[in-house]
């Protein structure tokens, strides 16, 4: 059995649905549903999405070339069958979890992924605020093990595209909780936490489709207080080119000031916010400071009572 359809059409065919749902969400927000829209911010997000499609067309050859080369060394020749589809879905989602977690923990990958988090809004247009440099920075290496195991390249790309389409739906504030599905699936509530800059929410909920990976690897946080969206140092611009390249420019600037191999490594592959003198703060440090403040607050409350 071969790929059942042209997988390159998955995203293309989803675009009209995206447009209809964005209109529906905006109307709902105008009528009083929870959520926030701004035409300028949405324009920036949609421009990033369009640029992502252009960049994808120009750079997808890199990813395909690497995957096809790797497939020559595959351990198994896995066919298209119901059991391999189930396994590939799980494996792709696990690969996404580790890609996504690394994209937050290592500046090389964060430089591309930060684009997606750079809006202070959280609505369906935010889902389309995507990087232009993902393939160029070799983000696809996280899916390479699947090809080496022997899953067909098209099968991996198909589930990757399905995951992207699924994740569009969870970028919304208009849906609150989804009952028992919250245990298994990545939901709007879980993903709101992921996009939040509240210290307690930092470094959490990296899942693509299944939230079970976060529960398994200890990165799950339940939505409690209202999230505040964006990044630690929010951008002061809606210019798509500045949004796309600001972190890369930041890396280049830091490299010019680096004085040792350790500093070069830290600036490129350290956590975002790393600096040799500790003058900047990583998200882990911000979260630790928040926890310390909270403990002091709790201790003082205890003494008062």
């Amino acid at each position: 059995m071969d790929a059942p359809f042209d997988i390159s059409l998955i995203i293309t065919l989803a675009v009209p649905l995206f447009v209809v749902l964005i209109i529906a969400e905006a109307v709902a927000v105008r009528l009083g549903a929870r959520g926030r829209y701004d035409a300028q911010d949405a324009a920036a997000s949609l421009a990033m999405g369009l640029g992502n499609r252009v960049a994808g067309l120009l750079t997808v050859g890199i990813k395909l070339g690497v995957f096809l080369a790797l497939s020559q060394f595959a351990l198994f020749d896995i066919p298209w069958a119901w059991w391999s589809l189930v396994l590939c879905f799980l494996a792709e989602d696990l690969a996404y979890y580790w890609f996504h977690r690394t994209a937050h923990e290592r500046r090389w990958f964060w430089a591309s992924h930060v684009v997606h988090h750079s809006s202070q809004h959280y609505n369906l247009t935010t889902a389309l605020r995507q990087t232009w440099t993902g393939d160029l920075s070799a983000s696809f290496v996280f899916w390479a093990p699947l090809i080496l195991i022997g899953f067909p390249v098209e099968m991996v790309l198909m589930f990757s595209a399905f995951s992207l389409v699924y994740q569009f739906f969870i970028h919304t504030e208009t849906i609150d909780r989804l009952g028992p599905l919250e245990w298994v699936l990545n939901t709007p509530s879980h993903h709101r936490v992921h996009h939040a800059t509240n210290p307690k929410y930092l470094d959490a909920n990296y899942a693509g489709v299944l939230i079970v990976w976060d529960r398994l690897f200890g990165t799950f946080i339940q939505e409690e207080e209202r999230p505040s969206y964006g990044i630690i140092s929010n951008l002061g611009t809606l210019n798509p080119f500045r949004i796309a390249f600001h972190e890369w420019a930041g890396i280049a600037r830091d490299l010019l000031s680096a004085r040792s191999l350790r500093e070069i490594g830290g600036y490129v592959f350290g956590p975002p916010g790393w600096s040799p003198d500790g003058s900047r703060k990583t998200s882990a440090q911000i979260k630790a400071a928040w926890k310390a403040r909270r403990q002091v607050g709790t201790a003082l409350e205890g003494r008062r009572s």
Binding site: T12, V15, V19, I22, I23, A26, V27, R30, Y37, D38, A39, Q40, A42, A43, L46, A47, G49, L50, R53, V54, L57
Partner: peptide
């Protein structure tokens, strides 16, 4: 497809602006 997407983006932004999301 890109041209069509670009047109859709333009119309969507216009729609949002007309809806009053431009404070």
């Amino acid at each position: 497809i890109l041209a069509g997407s670009g047109l859709a983006v333009g119309l969507l932004v216009l729609f949002l602006a007309l809806m009053g999301f431009r404070r």
